[in-house]
Nucleic acid binder design. Structure first.
Lengths: 338, 338
DNA sequence: TTGAAAGCGCTAACAA
DNA sequence: TTGTTAGCGCTTTCAA
């Protein structure tokens, strides 16, 4: 038989109200009864039921996390750090893998509400914007990662992809590269990274060449290889390729190697995301690190502030990526650097 | 204001009991009232509170998942498929990242019980065996993955590592390899894989050479490279290396390449796990695939059977791994195969 | 400082 | 077929 607050109260010779106060550190209790009750709780191995307390209107100390695909390492890391921070703050997280499917999103959200979660975190690639709007209207605690919806008043944490793209390009330029190919995936993050790439070129007085920008239909290594070959075929030889994620960059490396180019001697390559892949590959990949842990911790903080009513204003947190220089980048040879 | 079963009952002109019966498809209700009530529920956008129904002793339709490290792709996949199957069966999953820390395990379990989860799934590397024993004694629904504790009566799903190791070795032998180095990590799975390796050798009439078995202190690529170098240094040249996971195998590949050996011409390499890494690397890695999805689905099934009281006997499910042949393995040259 | 009692939203016996 | 009602385990007001 599960033991309840009544058992504790009876055994300690006090009322349930007293026990409840002690559990929640409320009201004023004499040190003597407090000790007594604590002892009894210990002895009985009493665990208050969060269900009952939730029914009384208190928090469930549970949040929902909607993620498109856990098998994507980036998302898995988000999940990890969100859980980590949640745990620190006393919140459990219910994982929901949506496959970026609007219907699943719908179902999950409605389920989470039935379970009375205190708030919801949504990771990138969320499709069902209507749903988000509804939650906002209801003032349901909500925070999102990595997809800033400029038109919606939501707490969000984003990494500055624009800056990331800029940094990559700036670095390559500083190494003397002038023709820099780019291979991207067709999503919002990539767009920003491309903008940063363009801006860096412009800031150095170089007109971006559209032919050097390749958008993959799908972010696979095969596509990357394919487009890298096209880039490498162009008349005016490029000396560097920026892959908008590590996998794409690795595809480019492989394409280069297959036609006998040495990396980084004949071609510099930079990736994005600093996944495990970047250290597996040889030579190890220069790439951009997203502050995954910070991102995860930050969203949770934003969300719990809403839950606790600590915060009334909406925050858009933008975190900065960081260039991780490894072995696939090198000063350009046979060129005078101005 | 949250709308409750009372609101529905009032608006539909029936009692809450009737509404409850309709929600749960119990008792007998005239088609007319059913329709009426359903309509009202729809109109009111009524969502029953699972909290309240849980307090009445019903299920929470929530299970806990304890995993050591979500940033390990294998575990992330477990999590993904467990969530997937849970979702299909109507269960949410609360993610708990334990870092294989017995205290965290303890805290999570106690928390999960407070939240009245219906059951708990524990993934490999669980430390706190005492805790498990306690849960079993309480008949708390429990199932584990990938770590069979021969002494405990727990539903478990395991992949047959022994067979995996056997298959790898058998395949290498069939290609004519006779001296096969092995690089392993120091865990239980590896032990089994090593046993399989030994057995396959013995079955072919070859006495396993202890010097060819290397156990890494930590499962990093660096250690793997280090031990691969030692293996490659041995007087009697080996012609193949079996890395007990993909990362180790890749370390071996790199060590080989650094001393000018061609893969697979001069050395065959096989990994284990069929992670993304195995297709990134060039040549792509021959490896062993674990049926991750099956594993995930199976544990959930075992657990929910316990929860529903459908099953009273304990199951140990053993799933079979599968050799995925790619480009790092090759028939041995300059040798007559018997 | 303590306790009595109402009620959170739902379910399930039991009665009608 | 439908409704009345007593809880599930807890919190909280209010009175003592």
């Amino acid at each position: 038989m599960k033991i309840t607050i009544y058992d504790v109260a009876k055994k300690a010779g006090v009322s349930t109200a007293t026990v409840s106060k002690i559990i929640n550190n409320k009201g004023s209790i004499s040190e003597k009864t407090r000790q007594k009750v604590l002892e009894v709780m210990e002895g009985l191995q009493y665990q208050p039921s969060m269900i009952a307390s939730a029914l009384k209107g208190k928090s469930t100390y549970t949040i929902g996390l909607l993620i498109p695909d856990l098998s994507n390492p980036i998302f898995a890391e988000y999940a990890k750090y969100i859980e980590e921070r949640g745990q620190e703050l006393g919140f459990s997280v219910i994982m929901c893998n949506t496959d970026a499917n609007p219907e699943k999103e719908q179902n999950y959200i409605s389920l989470l509400k039935q379970k009375q979660v205190d708030g919801i975190i949504v990771a990138a690639r969320f499709k069902n914007i209507t749903l988000l709007k509804k939650l906002i209207k209801e003032k349901f605690p909500l925070a999102i990662i990595a997809k800033d919806l400029p038109t919606l008043p939501i707490d969000s944490v984003t990494v500055d992809d624009y800056l990331g793209g800029y940094q990559v390009t700036e670095y390559l330029l500083s190494l003397g590269h002038r023709k820099i190919g780019l291979i991207a995936e067709g999503d919002r993050s990539s767009e920003e990274r491309i903008k940063g790439y363009r801006q860096a070129l412009l800031d150095t007085g170089i007109q971006p060449v559209e032919d050097l920008i390749m958008i993959c239909d799908k972010p696979t290594r095969e596509f990357a290889k394919h487009y890298a070959e096209i880039l490498l075929d162009k008349e005016k030889g490029i000396s560097a390729i920026f892959g908008c994620n590590d996998l794409l960059a690795i595809g480019a490396m492989q394409a280069a190697r297959e036609r006998g180019l040495e990396i980084p001697d004949d071609l510099s390559v930079i990736g994005f995301d600093n996944t495990d892949l970047s250290t597996i590959v040889i030579p190890s990949l220069t790439t951009v690190q997203q502050p995954l842990r910070d991102i995860g911790h930050h969203v949770v903080d934003l969300l719990t502030e809403q839950i606790n009513g600590t915060s009334r204003t909406t925050h858009r947190v933008v975190l900065l990526p960081e260039l991780v220089i490894r072995q696939t980048t090198k000063q350009v040879e046979n060129k005078t650097i101005e």
